[in-house]
Each structure stands twice: as C-alpha cells, then as structure tokens.
C-alpha cells in the first residue's frame, strides 16, 4: 500500500516537472496560476493583503468573496499589474503563471506583457469613446494588427463570444455609449476576449447591472470557461455559488479559506467562513 502511494507520488512529481501537465495531487486539475505569499501595501502604508496563497485552475472559475474592503479587488488587480499605474503601491511575493512558470510580479517582467496575456473586465462598464467595432478591435490594434479581414473576423468572433453580435451586427460603427449598461459590459467582455487571453479577470462585473443583464453575463462566463481561466470578484454570494468552481473567502486582507465552491458553501472548515456564508456577518 505504502509502495503504491509512493509510486503515485513519484508519478505525479514527474508530471509536474513537465510544465504542460502540471497537476495538483488532491484535485485532478491543471494549475494555470498561483499566488505565493503575496503581500500588498498601499501608498498610505495600509497592509491590504497578507500572505495570500491562492491557485487558479485551468478552465475553471475561481471566485473571491468577502466583505467590502477585504482586499479581494486589490488581489484581482494584482494579476494584471494594475497597481503599477499608481505611484507608491508596494507588493511582494509571487504570482506564477503557467505553463511557462513566469512570475508576473517580477520587476523584470513587463506589465504590458502580463496584460496582453491576462485581460480584465471592470466593475463599471468602461467602453472607450469609440465605435463598437473599434472598442472590440482595440486590443488587436494595440498589438499592431492592421489586417482588415482579420480584424473583422476577430471582432465578429469576440462579439459572438460575448453574446452581443446579434444585437449590434447592424450598427458596428455606432458609438459604444449608445448601448445599454448590460450591452456595454458585454462589449467590454468582447473587448477583453478579442485578444485570446489566457486568463480573464472580472471585478464585480454585474454590480452595476440589472438582474436580466446579470443573468446574461453569468451564462456568458459559464460559456467562456470552456476556453479560458476565470478569476472573479463578487459581492454576491449566490453568484459565486452559481457560477464558480472554486471559492476563496477573504477577510481583512487575509485569505481565510479556499476550496471547491460546493465545499465552501456546504461544509466550510472555518467558522468565520460559515458565519459569512450564512449571513451572520458581512
């Protein structure tokens, strides 16, 4: 028995050595990214995140939940180095992106490179003051793509992927501001999708939307995870329960518990998590 276990461990280690087959033992998932001892300080000295260790699994949705100010958005924004835009923010630890094992927080790694691999959808829809078409094509243009045919195809594909194509296909040259809030958010998803990102970050993407638009976006995310890895911050616990595969509960800058969503919502191992989930607190 011990021998058999030993054999399995050796086998798994071997697999882990090959970056394309990185496997975590307990769950049969491919690891896409993981944060290791991640700490974050704002310019005013606030220690916003303390030793965060969270894995993201390939083609799964991982949800970050917790009360306001717990640091979940701060954590999410670390994944595409948004914090580099503001002077004085300090962070340490690692966020490793697989399969190439790049530490995306490394100062030697260009934040722009990170952002080209990991795209983001914001809390409030923030389309550019451009046409629908140009909004979606923006990421490709930034990458220096000028081929009209290819752009057309990619824009169509991304808009279809964001379930927006049927609503806008006849008015691609309209200003993006003319869309409804829910449509704008799907446009932002299409914009993020058009560049084939490896991971998509969602920062409370439905908090500014009405219930119907919210359902649309949630369905869309379930569709998207067939192709890519998703990390989402949400205020809404039902949303986390509905769409995510894994959930991390954060409180006051610390990661309290991380597990499969089903486990977090049915039999969490920490009392604090249970209190938050059941609404006793939060």
């Amino acid at each position: 028995m011990a021998l058999l276990l030993n054999f399995v461990i050796v086998f798994v280690k071997k697999l882990n050595g090959n970056p394309r087959n990185k496997i975590i033992m307990a769950r049969k998932e491919i690891l896409k990214a993981e944060s290791k001892n991640f700490n974050f300080h704002y310019a005013d000295g606030t220690h916003a995140l303390k030793d965060i260790n969270i894995p993201l699994y390939e083609k799964k949705i991982t949800a970050l939940i917790g009360p306001s100010g717990c640091g979940k958005s701060t954590f999410l924004r670390s994944f595409n180095r948004m914090h580099d835009l503001y002077a004085g923010n300090k962070y340490d630890g690692e966020i490793i992106l697989h399969p190439d094992d790049t530490n995306i927080l490394d100062k030697k790694v260009d934040p722009i490179e990170v952002r080209m691999r990991i795209s983001m959808v914001f809390q409030k829809p923030n389309p550019f003051p451009k046409s629908i078409y140009e909004n979606v094509a923006y990421g490709l243009r930034v990458r220096g793509e000028h081929n009209k045919r290819l752009l057309d195809d990619k824009v169509e594909e991304a808009l279809k992927g964001a379930s927006l194509w049927n609503e806008v296909k006849d008015r691609l040259q309209d200003l993006a501001y003319n869309l409804s809030g829910g449509q704008q958010q799907r446009l932002c998803i299409a914009r993020a999708l058009a560049t084939d990102p490896e991971i998509m970050l969602f920062d409370e993407p439905t908090s500014a939307l009405d219930p119907i638009a919210t359902v649309n976006i949630e369905e869309l995310m379930s569709e998207l995870k067939k192709k890519l890895t998703i990390l989402i911050v949400t205020h809404n616990m039902q949303q986390a329960a509905r769409i995510s595969d894994y959930t991390a509960y954060m409180y006051l800058g610390e990661m309290i518990e991380f597990d499969e969503t089903d486990i977090i919502f049915t039999k969490p191992s920490k009392k604090a998590t249970e209190d938050y989930i059941t609404g006793k607190f939060g």
Binding site: R20, P99, D100, D110, R117, D196, E198, K227, L228, T229
Partner: peptide, 16 residues
Amino acid sequence: MSKIIGHEDNLNAIRV
C-alpha cells in the same frame, strides 16, 4: 483558445 500550442513563440512575439 488559450495558447498552449506554440506558447513560447507567442510570448516571444509579444515581447518583440
């Protein structure tokens, strides 16, 4: 669509 195939090439293209 994540670019596992030809991953390194892709990264290099991005860097250039």
